[in-house]
Design a protein around this nucleic acid. Sequence first.
RNA 1: GCCCGUGUAGCUCAGUAGGUAGAGCACCCCCUUGGUAAGGGGGAGGUCAUCGGUUCGACUCCGAUCGCGGGCUCCA
Length: 646
Amino acid sequence: MIRVTLLDGSARDVEEGTSFLEVAEGISPRLAKTAVCARWNGELHDLREPVPGDGALAVIGPGEPEALETLRHTASHIMAQAIKRQFPKVRLGIGPAIEEGFYYDLDLPTPLVEEDLEKIATGMREVIAADLPITRKDLSKAEARALFEKRGETYKLELLEDIEGETVSVYEQGEFVDLCRGPHLRSTGALRADAVKLLSIAGAYWRGDEKRPMLQRVYGTAWEKAKDLEQYLWRLEEAAKRDHRKVGKELDLFSIHEEGGAGLICWHPKGARLRRTIEEFWYAEHDRRGYEIVATPHIGKEQLWTISGHLGFYRENMYSPMDIDGVDYFIKPMNCPYQILIYKTRTHSYRELPMRMAELGTVYRYERSGVLHGLLRVRGFTIDDGHIFCRPDQVDEEIRSVYDFAVGMLTTFGFREFDIYLATRPHAGKAVGEPERWEQATAALRAALDARGLPYKVDDGGGAFYGPKIDIKVKDTLGRPWQCSTIQFDFNLPERFDMTYIGEDGAEHRPYMVHRALLGSLERFIGCLIEQYGGAFPVWLAPVQAVVIPIADRHNEYAANLALHLRDAGLRAQVDDSGERMNSKIRAAQLNKVPYMLVVGDREAESEGASVRLRTGEDKGTMKLDLFLQTAKGIIDSKSLEVWAA
RNA sequence: GCCCGUGUAGCUCAGUAGGUAGAGCACCCCCUUGGUAAGGGGGAGGUCAUCGGUUCGACUCCGAUCGCGGGCUCCA
């Protein structure tokens, strides 16, 4: 007998060989009817599998994340089946469920085109309508090998070799068989045809390796109900509207030029204004927290990059050298070497540590053309780059304060969702520095994370070769994570540059070095900001905070004076004295997402006031200028995400 | 870099079985001076990404290059 513990804590004993489904039936026939898969001791299993031994069982029904994952995995099989019917020569790669859908990688002699998606979708509807039972079979590796050899599925054979253990499972539905761990739905008809949609075709290297064949990947999405699919598609549309490349053009923030070069950003006046506001805030915060601001050159001699090791380990991201008086100079891909040179200009006492140095340093890195993406992935960018040089006993405190600084910064800008990673020592001996230092450094990072209680994931072995790190990513509207903050230990550069400080004992010691960027790069960060707000920035960031709108030309003078007054008070204000009608001016300001529109006509000129309209569409009515200024300044100074105070 | 797609006025997009192009917005001019999301009229603006090939003739077909988009890989 096997003892199965249920969710409510009760237990029941079942015969060996009993399937999860049978257990579910024993609990309640209704549960069994809607059940999708089983979670057994924390692992997902197919309902048809026999219970392997004593353990805890949760029967997963609709509405749970695992159910959606199972359904998507089945959708990918159904798609593969439909594709195989249309293109018998296809060889299958892998076809997993992903965050919001599924894909299947295929090797096809001819490229798929958009129209093929519709045909494949039709084929899928047929498979779903046929309601083919999905069965699971355990095979020995030899049996499986024979099966996939017969079918010419060379990629499956390769996968088979990498699976540990002697038996593998395959899933069958009608004529379709796939090597698969499962779990799956019970029949193809369990998927709703109106809740599935094929989205796109893309290229993908077999097993992500560019030395291997390029396969074709078909992306799709699948949901429990048609309504869920609709909602998802609506979300995609909304996200597209906020795309920073589109919004950046509409709001006249930045441009990229074919003549200038891919991945190189030109900031227009309004984008530059936004950037400057961020920089000013950034400088103020760094002053407050005891950073020394520095500035370093854009190019440096080969010698510098040899000492730093960049020419050894970072060369492929660096641009070709330029010859200056017979010496090779390189455009900097990082700021750290120069900051270290600054540190090294004199001896340092243990008393003056920690030393915190920072700059908005513009670097250039070679990125392959295919990865460039608006502001989010560029070739020239400005890192808000800081380096902390400290004693071992100061590390904990420094890490904690940098971490708080980073989270506080991102929070001020209105980001609420973070993915936090702790990346630890790389395996296979690819790390520099003694293991004890790694342990201490990793412990310091972990302690900072634990102290703040935000959830984080451990990226085992994901650290740089020179030290462990914390990465903080924010999510854009498409749900794509973008790395902003990073806090990285460095055991490498202090050695290479022979950095020292004089300790209490009068002897030379090696300082600890921490690289940190809070916003990441200004380009990427602004890209994220644009998407976060769809261009309707918090008032303190808005490139133009107020537009004064004269109703008729005779109000232009009053409007100009008003704008002057606002600018004196520190607001970024403009007058719209174009010959347009008031309605048209309001529309223009609205489309530019200007937070405040101050309409002025005879009444306002008379009363020394303005009629205040917010970009939310709200009309606050006519008010004295002072009252408006007071409220607006309150919003701006507090960096509120609201446009108006209640 | 690789796979697929794509590139027409400042912007968003039509268009041609291959015979050198059109709209709306924006811009300029004129009329209108209007109370909370587009007043009316007129005008100017394009070697149809670039280079090469096929053709009597290419914006249209083919190739290459560059850019852009969706992915793969990589990163701030």
